[in-house]
Design a protein around this nucleic acid. Structure first.
Lengths: 216, 216
DNA sequence: CACTTGATGTAAGAGCTATTCACATGAGTT
DNA sequence: AACTCATGTGAATAGCTCTTACATCAAGTG
Protein backbone atom coordinates (compact mmCIF):
# COMPACT_ATOMS: atom_id res chain seq x y z
CA UNK A 1 0.00 0.00 0.00
CA UNK A 2 1.20 3.49 -0.68
CA UNK A 3 -1.11 6.30 0.09
CA UNK A 4 1.84 8.36 1.10
CA UNK A 5 4.32 8.18 -1.68
CA UNK A 6 4.73 6.84 -5.17
CA UNK A 7 6.69 3.69 -5.86
CA UNK A 8 10.04 5.42 -5.70
CA UNK A 9 11.63 7.10 -2.73
CA UNK A 10 10.62 10.44 -1.29
CA UNK A 11 7.54 12.49 -1.96
CA UNK A 12 5.91 12.59 -5.38
CA UNK A 13 6.61 16.29 -5.28
CA UNK A 14 5.39 19.14 -3.20
CA UNK A 15 1.97 17.63 -2.71
CA UNK A 16 1.33 14.42 -0.89
CA UNK A 17 -1.39 13.00 -3.03
CA UNK A 18 -3.45 11.20 -0.45
CA UNK A 19 -2.77 12.84 2.86
CA UNK A 20 -6.23 12.43 4.28
CA UNK A 21 -6.17 8.64 4.11
CA UNK A 22 -2.53 8.54 5.16
CA UNK A 23 -3.39 10.48 8.32
CA UNK A 24 -6.23 8.16 9.18
CA UNK A 25 -3.98 5.17 8.72
CA UNK A 26 -1.28 6.82 10.81
CA UNK A 27 -3.80 7.52 13.56
CA UNK A 28 -4.84 3.86 13.60
CA UNK A 29 -1.24 2.70 13.77
CA UNK A 30 -0.39 5.10 16.56
CA UNK A 31 -3.46 4.25 18.62
CA UNK A 32 -2.76 0.57 18.15
CA UNK A 33 0.86 1.01 19.17
CA UNK A 34 0.63 3.45 22.05
CA UNK A 35 -2.98 3.58 23.14
CA UNK A 36 -5.59 6.20 22.42
CA UNK A 37 -3.82 8.80 24.54
CA UNK A 38 -0.53 8.20 22.74
CA UNK A 39 -1.85 9.53 19.50
CA UNK A 40 -0.81 13.05 18.51
CA UNK A 41 -1.68 15.06 15.47
CA UNK A 42 1.95 16.06 15.06
CA UNK A 43 3.20 12.51 15.04
CA UNK A 44 0.58 11.46 12.53
CA UNK A 45 1.84 14.23 10.30
CA UNK A 46 5.41 13.10 10.82
CA UNK A 47 4.44 9.52 9.98
CA UNK A 48 2.87 10.72 6.76
CA UNK A 49 5.95 12.76 5.97
CA UNK A 50 4.42 16.22 6.03
CA UNK A 51 4.73 19.26 8.26
CA UNK A 52 2.68 19.60 11.42
CA UNK A 53 0.42 22.18 9.84
CA UNK A 54 -0.55 20.13 6.80
CA UNK A 55 -3.21 18.00 8.52
CA UNK A 56 -5.25 21.13 9.18
CA UNK A 57 -5.98 21.29 5.44
CA UNK A 58 -7.92 18.04 5.84
CA UNK A 59 -9.28 18.06 9.38
CA UNK A 60 -10.53 20.99 11.39
CA UNK A 61 -8.59 19.80 14.41
CA UNK A 62 -7.25 16.75 16.17
CA UNK A 63 -10.72 15.70 17.32
CA UNK A 64 -12.05 15.83 13.79
CA UNK A 65 -9.49 13.25 12.70
CA UNK A 66 -10.35 11.01 15.62
CA UNK A 67 -14.04 11.41 14.87
CA UNK A 68 -13.42 10.36 11.31
CA UNK A 69 -11.50 7.30 12.46
CA UNK A 70 -14.36 6.45 14.80
CA UNK A 71 -16.90 6.93 12.02
CA UNK A 72 -14.96 4.62 9.74
CA UNK A 73 -14.79 2.18 12.63
CA UNK A 74 -18.54 2.21 13.09
CA UNK A 75 -18.99 1.60 9.38
CA UNK A 76 -16.74 -1.44 9.46
CA UNK A 77 -18.41 -2.53 12.66
CA UNK A 78 -21.79 -2.31 11.01
CA UNK A 79 -20.44 -4.42 8.19
CA UNK A 80 -19.11 -7.23 10.34
CA UNK A 81 -22.19 -7.25 12.54
CA UNK A 82 -24.35 -7.48 9.46
CA UNK A 83 -22.32 -10.38 8.11
CA UNK A 84 -22.42 -12.14 11.47
CA UNK A 85 -26.17 -11.77 11.75
CA UNK A 86 -26.50 -13.02 8.18
CA UNK A 87 -30.20 -12.24 8.03
CA UNK A 88 -30.90 -14.58 10.88
CA UNK A 89 -29.45 -17.68 9.29
CA UNK A 90 -29.23 -20.54 10.02
CA UNK A 91 -31.73 -19.64 12.70
CA UNK A 92 -32.26 -16.44 14.61
CA UNK A 93 -31.08 -17.90 17.90
CA UNK A 94 -27.75 -19.03 16.53
CA UNK A 95 -27.32 -15.90 14.46
CA UNK A 96 -27.90 -13.83 17.57
CA UNK A 97 -25.03 -15.59 19.27
CA UNK A 98 -22.85 -14.96 16.24
CA UNK A 99 -23.60 -11.27 16.59
CA UNK A 100 -22.14 -11.27 20.08
CA UNK A 101 -19.06 -13.16 18.95
CA UNK A 102 -18.54 -10.70 16.12
CA UNK A 103 -18.81 -7.78 18.54
CA UNK A 104 -16.07 -9.21 20.69
CA UNK A 105 -13.95 -10.21 17.73
CA UNK A 106 -14.07 -6.66 16.46
CA UNK A 107 -12.96 -5.22 19.80
CA UNK A 108 -10.13 -7.73 19.86
CA UNK A 109 -8.87 -7.54 16.31
CA UNK A 110 -9.41 -3.82 15.78
CA UNK A 111 -8.51 -2.29 19.13
CA UNK A 112 -7.54 0.98 17.49
CA UNK A 113 -10.95 1.41 15.91
CA UNK A 114 -12.64 0.27 19.09
CA UNK A 115 -10.72 2.82 21.13
CA UNK A 116 -11.61 5.61 18.77
CA UNK A 117 -15.25 4.56 18.81
CA UNK A 118 -15.80 4.10 22.51
CA UNK A 119 -12.90 5.34 24.57
CA UNK A 120 -11.58 8.51 23.07
CA UNK A 121 -14.28 10.85 24.28
CA UNK A 122 -15.15 12.63 21.07
CA UNK A 123 -18.25 14.70 21.81
CA UNK A 124 -21.06 13.24 19.71
CA UNK A 125 -22.95 16.50 19.40
CA UNK A 126 -20.04 18.05 17.51
CA UNK A 127 -19.92 15.23 14.98
CA UNK A 128 -23.38 14.23 13.79
CA UNK A 129 -22.07 11.81 11.14
CA UNK A 130 -20.36 9.93 13.93
CA UNK A 131 -23.59 9.54 15.84
CA UNK A 132 -25.37 8.45 12.68
CA UNK A 133 -22.73 5.82 11.96
CA UNK A 134 -23.09 4.52 15.50
CA UNK A 135 -26.84 4.44 15.16
CA UNK A 136 -26.60 2.45 11.94
CA UNK A 137 -24.42 -0.15 13.66
CA UNK A 138 -26.85 -0.35 16.54
CA UNK A 139 -29.70 -0.75 14.08
CA UNK A 140 -28.27 -4.12 13.04
CA UNK A 141 -28.49 -5.35 16.62
CA UNK A 142 -31.94 -3.90 16.97
CA UNK A 143 -33.21 -5.57 13.81
CA UNK A 144 -31.74 -8.86 15.00
CA UNK A 145 -33.48 -8.49 18.35
CA UNK A 146 -36.75 -7.83 16.58
CA UNK A 147 -36.45 -10.92 14.44
CA UNK A 148 -35.57 -13.04 17.42
CA UNK A 149 -38.39 -11.60 19.50
CA UNK A 150 -40.87 -12.49 16.81
CA UNK A 151 -40.10 -16.16 17.22
CA UNK A 152 -41.82 -15.92 20.59
CA UNK A 153 -45.58 -16.14 21.06
CA UNK A 154 -46.94 -12.63 21.21
CA UNK A 155 -47.85 -12.84 24.88
CA UNK A 156 -44.32 -13.70 26.00
CA UNK A 157 -42.57 -11.49 23.48
CA UNK A 158 -40.02 -9.13 25.08
CA UNK A 159 -39.53 -5.55 23.84
CA UNK A 160 -36.98 -5.79 21.06
CA UNK A 161 -35.36 -2.43 21.75
CA UNK A 162 -34.72 -3.43 25.32
CA UNK A 163 -33.20 -6.70 24.19
CA UNK A 164 -30.97 -4.86 21.77
CA UNK A 165 -29.78 -2.47 24.44
CA UNK A 166 -29.08 -5.35 26.78
CA UNK A 167 -27.12 -7.25 24.18
CA UNK A 168 -25.13 -4.19 23.21
CA UNK A 169 -24.24 -3.29 26.76
CA UNK A 170 -23.34 -6.86 27.72
CA UNK A 171 -21.00 -7.10 24.78
CA UNK A 172 -19.56 -3.69 25.41
CA UNK A 173 -19.09 -4.40 29.09
CA UNK A 174 -17.15 -7.58 28.47
CA UNK A 175 -15.20 -6.08 25.60
CA UNK A 176 -14.06 -3.04 27.52
CA UNK A 177 -13.31 -4.84 30.76
CA UNK A 178 -11.73 -8.04 29.53
CA UNK A 179 -10.98 -8.04 25.86
CA UNK A 180 -8.97 -4.90 25.25
CA UNK A 181 -6.00 -5.40 22.99
CA UNK A 182 -3.93 -8.38 24.03
CA UNK A 183 -3.42 -7.60 27.69
CA UNK A 184 -6.16 -8.89 29.93
CA UNK A 185 -6.86 -6.37 32.64
CA UNK A 186 -7.91 -9.15 34.95
CA UNK A 187 -7.21 -12.85 35.02
CA UNK A 188 -10.21 -14.90 34.06
CA UNK A 189 -11.21 -18.52 34.50
CA UNK A 190 -12.53 -18.47 30.94
CA UNK A 191 -12.04 -16.51 27.75
CA UNK A 192 -14.06 -13.35 27.17
CA UNK A 193 -15.76 -15.15 24.30
CA UNK A 194 -16.92 -17.99 26.56
CA UNK A 195 -17.95 -15.50 29.19
CA UNK A 196 -20.08 -13.56 26.73
CA UNK A 197 -21.59 -16.67 25.18
CA UNK A 198 -22.63 -17.94 28.58
CA UNK A 199 -24.11 -14.55 29.44
CA UNK A 200 -26.10 -14.54 26.20
CA UNK A 201 -27.46 -18.01 26.81
CA UNK A 202 -28.47 -17.30 30.38
CA UNK A 203 -30.05 -14.02 29.37
CA UNK A 204 -32.02 -15.53 26.51
CA UNK A 205 -33.09 -18.39 28.70
CA UNK A 206 -34.34 -15.85 31.19
CA UNK A 207 -36.48 -14.38 28.43
CA UNK A 208 -37.97 -17.76 27.71
CA UNK A 209 -35.93 -18.82 24.71
CA UNK A 210 -34.80 -22.36 24.97
CA UNK A 211 -32.22 -22.58 22.27
CA UNK A 212 -32.95 -25.37 19.86
CA UNK A 213 -36.69 -24.92 19.96
CA UNK A 214 -36.46 -21.23 19.10
CA UNK A 215 -35.02 -21.77 15.65
CA UNK A 216 -36.76 -19.57 13.10
CA UNK B 1 -13.71 22.90 52.93
CA UNK B 2 -10.18 24.19 52.94
CA UNK B 3 -7.46 21.74 52.19
CA UNK B 4 -5.65 24.46 50.36
CA UNK B 5 -5.49 27.41 52.64
CA UNK B 6 -6.25 28.44 56.16
CA UNK B 7 -9.42 30.33 56.98
CA UNK B 8 -8.10 33.67 55.83
CA UNK B 9 -7.05 34.70 52.36
CA UNK B 10 -3.89 33.67 50.59
CA UNK B 11 -1.43 30.95 51.42
CA UNK B 12 -0.57 30.06 54.96
CA UNK B 13 2.99 30.88 54.06
CA UNK B 14 5.55 29.40 51.77
CA UNK B 15 4.30 25.88 52.27
CA UNK B 16 0.87 24.79 51.27
CA UNK B 17 0.08 22.50 54.13
CA UNK B 18 -2.02 19.90 52.37
CA UNK B 19 -1.02 19.96 48.76
CA UNK B 20 -1.43 16.28 48.12
CA UNK B 21 -5.11 16.25 48.98
CA UNK B 22 -5.66 19.59 47.29
CA UNK B 23 -4.26 18.20 44.06
CA UNK B 24 -6.50 15.16 44.20
CA UNK B 25 -9.51 17.37 44.77
CA UNK B 26 -8.44 19.66 41.94
CA UNK B 27 -8.10 16.67 39.64
CA UNK B 28 -11.60 15.52 40.49
CA UNK B 29 -13.03 18.98 39.88
CA UNK B 30 -11.25 19.32 36.57
CA UNK B 31 -12.25 15.88 35.34
CA UNK B 32 -15.82 16.54 36.36
CA UNK B 33 -15.84 19.89 34.62
CA UNK B 34 -13.95 19.17 31.41
CA UNK B 35 -13.80 15.42 31.03
CA UNK B 36 -10.91 13.08 31.72
CA UNK B 37 -8.87 14.50 28.83
CA UNK B 38 -9.35 18.06 30.08
CA UNK B 39 -7.32 17.46 33.17
CA UNK B 40 -3.79 18.79 33.26
CA UNK B 41 -1.17 18.61 35.94
CA UNK B 42 -0.36 22.27 35.47
CA UNK B 43 -3.93 23.39 35.94
CA UNK B 44 -4.32 21.26 39.04
CA UNK B 45 -1.28 23.02 40.44
CA UNK B 46 -2.72 26.40 39.51
CA UNK B 47 -6.03 25.50 41.15
CA UNK B 48 -4.19 24.61 44.32
CA UNK B 49 -2.26 27.86 44.13
CA UNK B 50 1.24 26.45 43.71
CA UNK B 51 3.80 26.43 40.93
CA UNK B 52 3.73 23.81 38.18
CA UNK B 53 6.71 22.02 39.67
CA UNK B 54 5.30 21.60 43.16
CA UNK B 55 3.10 18.57 42.42
CA UNK B 56 6.21 16.54 41.61
CA UNK B 57 7.04 16.56 45.31
CA UNK B 58 3.92 14.47 45.89
CA UNK B 59 3.40 12.46 42.70
CA UNK B 60 6.00 10.94 40.44
CA UNK B 61 4.15 12.21 37.38
CA UNK B 62 0.73 13.05 36.02
CA UNK B 63 -0.26 9.40 35.78
CA UNK B 64 0.61 8.80 39.40
CA UNK B 65 -1.90 11.45 40.45
CA UNK B 66 -4.58 9.94 38.24
CA UNK B 67 -3.78 6.50 39.59
CA UNK B 68 -4.21 7.79 43.11
CA UNK B 69 -7.54 9.35 42.22
CA UNK B 70 -8.61 6.05 40.69
CA UNK B 71 -7.44 4.15 43.74
CA UNK B 72 -9.43 6.43 46.02
CA UNK B 73 -12.36 5.93 43.68
CA UNK B 74 -12.16 2.16 43.97
CA UNK B 75 -12.03 2.45 47.73
CA UNK B 76 -15.18 4.55 47.83
CA UNK B 77 -16.73 2.24 45.29
CA UNK B 78 -15.97 -0.74 47.50
CA UNK B 79 -17.59 1.10 50.37
CA UNK B 80 -20.84 1.88 48.62
CA UNK B 81 -21.06 -1.59 47.10
CA UNK B 82 -20.55 -3.08 50.52
CA UNK B 83 -23.27 -0.90 52.01
CA UNK B 84 -25.63 -1.74 49.15
CA UNK B 85 -25.08 -5.45 49.53
CA UNK B 86 -25.58 -5.08 53.27
CA UNK B 87 -24.53 -8.64 53.98
CA UNK B 88 -27.32 -9.99 51.83
CA UNK B 89 -30.15 -8.33 53.72
CA UNK B 90 -33.09 -8.34 53.55
CA UNK B 91 -32.56 -11.32 51.27
CA UNK B 92 -29.76 -12.12 48.91
CA UNK B 93 -31.88 -11.69 45.80
CA UNK B 94 -32.98 -8.17 46.71
CA UNK B 95 -29.54 -7.25 47.98
CA UNK B 96 -28.06 -8.38 44.69
CA UNK B 97 -30.30 -5.96 42.86
CA UNK B 98 -29.26 -3.20 45.22
CA UNK B 99 -25.67 -3.89 44.29
CA UNK B 100 -26.43 -3.15 40.65
CA UNK B 101 -28.27 0.02 41.51
CA UNK B 102 -25.38 1.16 43.64
CA UNK B 103 -22.96 0.50 40.79
CA UNK B 104 -24.96 2.72 38.48
CA UNK B 105 -25.52 5.36 41.12
CA UNK B 106 -21.79 5.60 41.64
CA UNK B 107 -21.10 6.05 37.94
CA UNK B 108 -23.77 8.73 37.85
CA UNK B 109 -22.98 10.70 40.97
CA UNK B 110 -19.20 10.38 40.82
CA UNK B 111 -18.40 10.64 37.13
CA UNK B 112 -14.96 12.01 37.87
CA UNK B 113 -14.00 9.00 39.96
CA UNK B 114 -15.60 6.68 37.44
CA UNK B 115 -13.61 8.23 34.62
CA UNK B 116 -10.38 7.92 36.50
CA UNK B 117 -11.16 4.31 37.38
CA UNK B 118 -12.26 3.01 34.01
CA UNK B 119 -11.64 5.47 31.22
CA UNK B 120 -8.34 7.16 31.79
CA UNK B 121 -6.08 4.33 30.70
CA UNK B 122 -3.68 4.20 33.60
CA UNK B 123 -1.57 1.08 33.07
CA UNK B 124 -2.42 -1.28 35.92
CA UNK B 125 0.97 -2.96 35.95
CA UNK B 126 2.63 0.32 36.89
CA UNK B 127 0.35 0.85 39.86
CA UNK B 128 -0.17 -2.33 41.86
CA UNK B 129 -2.14 -0.59 44.62
CA UNK B 130 -4.63 0.45 41.99
CA UNK B 131 -5.14 -3.10 40.84
CA UNK B 132 -5.50 -4.23 44.44
CA UNK B 133 -8.11 -1.59 45.15
CA UNK B 134 -10.04 -2.70 42.07
CA UNK B 135 -9.80 -6.30 43.14
CA UNK B 136 -11.14 -5.48 46.58
CA UNK B 137 -14.17 -3.77 45.03
CA UNK B 138 -14.74 -6.74 42.77
CA UNK B 139 -14.47 -9.05 45.76
CA UNK B 140 -17.66 -7.53 47.16
CA UNK B 141 -19.54 -8.50 44.02
CA UNK B 142 -17.96 -11.91 44.04
CA UNK B 143 -18.90 -12.58 47.65
CA UNK B 144 -22.44 -11.48 46.90
CA UNK B 145 -22.60 -13.83 43.94
CA UNK B 146 -21.37 -16.65 46.13
CA UNK B 147 -24.02 -16.03 48.76
CA UNK B 148 -26.73 -15.83 46.16
CA UNK B 149 -25.51 -18.97 44.41
CA UNK B 150 -25.69 -20.88 47.66
CA UNK B 151 -29.42 -20.31 47.83
CA UNK B 152 -29.70 -22.68 44.89
CA UNK B 153 -29.73 -26.46 45.21
CA UNK B 154 -26.22 -27.71 44.63
CA UNK B 155 -27.09 -29.37 41.33
CA UNK B 156 -28.38 -26.19 39.73
CA UNK B 157 -25.85 -23.87 41.35
CA UNK B 158 -24.04 -21.63 38.86
CA UNK B 159 -20.33 -20.78 39.22
CA UNK B 160 -20.21 -17.72 41.46
CA UNK B 161 -17.18 -16.19 39.81
CA UNK B 162 -18.88 -16.32 36.46
CA UNK B 163 -21.97 -14.70 37.92
CA UNK B 164 -19.88 -11.96 39.44
CA UNK B 165 -18.11 -11.27 36.16
CA UNK B 166 -21.43 -11.15 34.36
CA UNK B 167 -22.93 -8.75 36.85
CA UNK B 168 -19.90 -6.51 36.81
CA UNK B 169 -19.75 -6.34 33.03
CA UNK B 170 -23.50 -5.76 32.65
CA UNK B 171 -23.32 -2.89 35.08
CA UNK B 172 -20.20 -1.50 33.51
CA UNK B 173 -21.64 -1.78 30.02
CA UNK B 174 -24.77 0.13 30.90
CA UNK B 175 -22.90 2.66 32.98
CA UNK B 176 -20.37 3.49 30.32
CA UNK B 177 -22.80 3.53 27.42
CA UNK B 178 -25.82 5.20 28.94
CA UNK B 179 -25.18 6.67 32.34
CA UNK B 180 -22.12 8.84 31.93
CA UNK B 181 -22.40 12.18 33.65
CA UNK B 182 -25.65 13.91 32.85
CA UNK B 183 -25.58 13.69 29.07
CA UNK B 184 -27.11 10.55 27.68
CA UNK B 185 -25.09 9.38 24.73
CA UNK B 186 -28.18 7.79 23.24
CA UNK B 187 -31.86 8.35 23.78
CA UNK B 188 -33.48 5.58 25.71
CA UNK B 189 -37.05 4.40 26.19
CA UNK B 190 -36.23 3.81 29.86
CA UNK B 191 -33.73 5.00 32.43
CA UNK B 192 -30.40 3.24 32.73
CA UNK B 193 -31.50 2.10 36.17
CA UNK B 194 -34.59 0.42 34.79
CA UNK B 195 -32.60 -1.05 31.97
CA UNK B 196 -30.09 -2.57 34.34
CA UNK B 197 -32.71 -3.84 36.74
CA UNK B 198 -34.56 -5.57 33.93
CA UNK B 199 -31.30 -7.08 32.71
CA UNK B 200 -30.53 -8.39 36.19
CA UNK B 201 -33.95 -9.94 36.56
CA UNK B 202 -33.86 -11.62 33.19
CA UNK B 203 -30.34 -12.88 33.81
CA UNK B 204 -31.14 -14.27 37.24
CA UNK B 205 -34.28 -15.84 35.93
CA UNK B 206 -32.18 -17.49 33.25
CA UNK B 207 -30.05 -18.98 36.02
CA UNK B 208 -33.14 -20.41 37.69
CA UNK B 209 -33.72 -17.84 40.40
CA UNK B 210 -37.34 -16.90 40.62
CA UNK B 211 -37.21 -13.82 42.76
CA UNK B 212 -39.45 -14.15 45.80
CA UNK B 213 -38.76 -17.79 46.31
CA UNK B 214 -35.01 -17.29 46.35
CA UNK B 215 -34.96 -15.26 49.55
CA UNK B 216 -32.20 -16.42 51.82
C1' DC C 1 1.44 29.82 -24.22
C1' DA C 2 1.09 33.10 -20.11
C1' DC C 3 -1.92 33.88 -16.38
C1' DT C 4 -5.08 33.19 -12.77
C1' DT C 5 -7.06 30.40 -9.21
C1' DG C 6 -7.82 27.02 -5.65
C1' DA C 7 -6.10 23.23 -3.15
C1' DT C 8 -2.46 21.82 -0.59
C1' DG C 9 1.88 22.29 1.31
C1' DT C 10 5.71 24.98 4.48
C1' DA C 11 7.90 27.97 8.10
C1' DA C 12 7.55 30.46 11.99
C1' DG C 13 5.43 31.61 16.14
C1' DA C 14 2.11 32.03 20.25
C1' DG C 15 0.55 29.66 24.01
C1' DC C 16 -0.11 25.52 26.09
C1' DT C 17 1.80 21.16 28.71
C1' DA C 18 5.10 17.73 31.19
C1' DT C 19 9.19 17.30 33.37
C1' DT C 20 13.72 18.43 35.49
C1' DC C 21 17.20 21.08 37.91
C1' DA C 22 19.34 24.17 40.98
C1' DC C 23 18.02 26.89 44.56
C1' DA C 24 14.91 29.06 48.42
C1' DT C 25 12.18 28.60 52.52
C1' DG C 26 10.80 27.36 56.82
C1' DA C 27 9.25 23.80 60.41
C1' DG C 28 11.01 20.82 63.57
C1' DT C 29 15.05 19.05 66.11
C1' DT C 30 18.89 19.18 68.50
C1' DA D 1 21.32 29.16 67.11
C1' DA D 2 22.52 25.81 63.70
C1' DC D 3 21.18 21.97 61.01
C1' DT D 4 18.41 19.34 58.09
C1' DC D 5 14.78 17.75 55.32
C1' DA D 6 10.46 18.20 53.19
C1' DT D 7 8.32 21.22 50.32
C1' DG D 8 7.91 25.04 47.17
C1' DT D 9 9.93 28.36 43.31
C1' DG D 10 11.91 29.85 38.79
C1' DA D 11 13.90 28.89 34.81
C1' DA D 12 14.87 25.83 31.14
C1' DT D 13 13.93 22.04 27.76
C1' DA D 14 11.24 19.71 24.72
C1' DG D 15 6.89 18.61 22.57
C1' DC D 16 2.09 19.54 21.22
C1' DT D 17 -2.00 22.26 19.20
C1' DC D 18 -3.34 25.58 16.33
C1' DT D 19 -2.87 30.06 13.55
C1' DT D 20 -1.04 33.03 10.03
C1' DA D 21 1.45 34.43 6.08
C1' DC D 22 3.54 32.68 2.29
C1' DA D 23 5.04 28.91 -1.37
C1' DT D 24 4.01 25.50 -4.78
C1' DC D 25 1.62 23.06 -8.12
C1' DA D 26 -2.35 21.33 -11.08
C1' DA D 27 -5.90 22.64 -13.89
C1' DG D 28 -8.46 25.66 -16.48
C1' DT D 29 -8.87 29.97 -19.44
C1' DG D 30 -8.08 33.61 -22.75
Amino acid sequence: MSWTRDGKSGRRGYHHGNLREALIQAALDLIAAKGPAGFTFAEAARTAGVSAAAPYRHFRDRDALLADVARQGFERFEGILSIAWNDGRPDSFTAFGNLGKAYLAFARTEPAYYSAMFEVGVPLEDHPELRKAGDRAFAIVRAAAETLAETMPRAKRPPALMMALHIWSMSHGIASLFARGDEARRKLPMTPEELLEAEFLIYLQGLGFDGMAAAG
